[in-house]
Simulated scan of single mutants.
Amino acid sequence: MRVPEPRGPLSEAVGAALRTGDPLPTHVAAPSAVLDDEDAQLALWMLFELHFRGFEDAVGDREWGPDLLRLRGGLEAGMEQELRAATRAVVEAAPDSGDLAEDLFALVAADDGPSVASYLQRHATREQVLEFLRQRSLYALKESDAHSFVLGRLDGPVKAALAEIQYDEYGSGRPERLHSTLYADALDAAGLDSTYGAYLPEVRVETLAANTVQAVFGMRRRLRGAAMGFLAAFETTSSLPCRKIATGIERVGLPAATAEYFSEHVEADAVHEQVAVRDVCAGLVAREPQLREDVLFGVATSLHLDAVTGARMLERWDAASVQAGTTSLVRVPVGVPDMPVGRAS
């Protein structure tokens, strides 16, 4: 993947620094608000990407460049502060029965955010399903990688439990069953581009934020509790929605190979949710009780960002918005034709 096109002066400065190898100008700094700023979110995504796949046109080894780390630290701090403020009421009101696992399940069950999965199952057009697949590609083509950074910060049964989840996510030793590979296959079957990062220019700011937050949590030892709480909420809200999404994919006539990725997660995540909540989160807090609030913060953050993303996506898909030419993507013309179907299922 090459350095993406900027969305503002901050991401432009980061891109220039990566392509030239020159240090960031000293005046470049994080803005006061990060969470809903697409320029700041793209800049943060680029800075984290140096720790994942990188950019083929980046000059030199910039992964640990002090100037880039300075900016990244400011962006991370701002995002964490905004998320703590947005989720504080939920965290403070979270149940405290003495059984953390049951408390986490109750917290997730109480969430009443909008259901994109239900809309995809029953109402979405073919074009809207394809939009959803493109948005999700930013996460799914490197699925679970951010959480792997946490493994070295855990020990004992908690580490083994997280490794169990990650082993499944990474195909249980079979490269063709890597969940990221299954998603690439799903995109290919739908006639979409499975190249890593291909749809980065099209994703909305809330999709960027839902991805960068996983690295914010996963790459700081201090936030290991939040990282595991986020993972637990993600897994706990995955199985049934994936079943609905698979049904919607089949309903609009996309190949079975596109639905397979989601069908795989119906059973896998039903198991993962129990492991993530009971063995990882509850086990972690049993060993380190001071991390309870951060685990709750991670759960609340996942639910909050999912609700924001879902509400905005459904708003852009309502009849009036569609008639006005709105899509869930950016820089995409109205009336995108049906994509050609790729590989047969």
Rank of each mutant, 00 (worst) to 15 (best):
P6D: 00
A286G: 15
L154T: 10
D61C: 05
D185C: 03
R7Y: 01
T20E: 12
A227D: 08
H51E: 14
S148P: 01
G248Q: 08
Q121A: 15
G8Q: 03
T207E: 14
R204F: 00
S115D: 12
R53D: 13
L200H: 07
M219Y: 12
D111C: 01
V332E: 14
V285M: 08
A30V: 10
M1S: 11
L329H: 09
E169F: 07
M339P: 12
A13V: 09
P6V: 00
L208M: 12
R343W: 02
T301D: 05
D269R: 05
S239D: 14
L254P: 08
A215E: 12
L83V: 15
D193R: 07
Y183M: 09
V158Y: 02
E176L: 09
E315G: 12
G156K: 10
A89K: 08
A40I: 10
P95R: 04
R224C: 12
R278C: 06
E127H: 07
R174S: 11
E267G: 11
L303T: 06
L138G: 03
D57N: 12
M79H: 02
S194Y: 01
P6M: 01
T26P: 00
V14P: 07
L47V: 02
L120A: 13
V322S: 10
Y139A: 10
G54E: 10
D306E: 14
S172I: 04
L24E: 09
L200Q: 13
E264T: 08
R222N: 06
Y183W: 06
E235R: 05
A215H: 12
A282K: 08
G191W: 08
D185A: 07
A43W: 00
S172R: 15
L50M: 11
S194I: 01
V277K: 09
R153E: 13
V116E: 07
V299P: 01
V330N: 11
D36E: 14
A282V: 04
R222T: 13
E12K: 06
E264Q: 12
T309M: 09
H272P: 11
S144P: 01
G253W: 05
R220W: 08
E127S: 15
D111L: 00
V332A: 14
H123V: 14
T20Q: 10
D96S: 12
A77Y: 03
R122C: 09
D39N: 06
A163W: 04
H51P: 01
V277I: 15
R251K: 14
H27E: 15
Q81V: 09
E5W: 00
V116Y: 00
L305S: 01
S239V: 02
G310C: 08
V322H: 02
R251N: 13
V14N: 08
R19N: 06
A307C: 05
A110N: 12
A246E: 11
D22C: 07
E38G: 01
V116S: 03
R72A: 12
P157T: 10
V322F: 02
L329W: 05
E102H: 05
